[in-house]
């Protein structure tokens, strides 16, 4: 168990609990069709979360911090993939599903392990075109199509 993380998480949840409690006070108390208004349930839950957070905070004081052997985490890979996923989401509607998916997969494959560009391109193309073809053409689903300048 990681003490630092537990503490930060606990304080975050404490804050979330307090936030929900304060905010639920602002919900109108009018209760159509119910004696108990829409504010009661979230308020109670917020309160319970606050109490539990305090309990966990005390628990984190007690147990010794166990330092496991630190494995070197692949932060760089993670961030590259995560940021490209965010870009994927931002660009999805402006430039369409096929192009963004294709690019995201290429970046993803190459980040995981460099090399064999050809195989990456083939798989990425098959997936993006395949999903688009199956979903939009066959199942009549909605996905952002090609950008205007390509149509």
């Amino acid at each position: 168990m990681n003490k630092t993380f537990d503490r930060i998480a606990t304080l975050t949840f404490l804050a979330i609990g307090v936030l929900f409690m304060i905010e639920s006070l602002r919900i109108s108390k009018s209760a159509y069709g119910s004696v108990v208004g829409p504010n009661v349930f979230p308020f109670l839950l917020g309160l319970i979360l606050v109490l539990l957070s305090i309990k966990l905070l005390f628990e984190t004081m007690r147990y010794p911090s166990i330092r496991g052997e630190k494995q070197r985490l692949q932060y760089k890979k993670f961030w590259i993939i995560f940021i490209s996923a965010i870009l994927y989401a931002i660009l999805l509607e402006p430039i369409g599903y096929v192009i963004t998916t294709f690019l995201f997969l290429i970046i993803g494959f190459q980040t995981m392990e460099k090399g064999s560009i050809r195989k990456s391109i083939i798989i990425a193309a098959c997936f993006s075109l395949g999903v688009y073809g199956l979903y939009v053409k066959m199942l009549q689903g909605t996905l952002p199509s090609w950008p205007i300048w390509l149509r």
């Binding site: 993939i81 998916t101 995201f104 997969l105 970046i107 993803g108 494959f109 997936f127 999903v131």
Partner: peptide, 10 residues
Amino acid sequence: LPLIIAISIF
């Protein structure tokens, strides 16, 4: 792994 992300987003 990248494919799972792509499937989730899709």
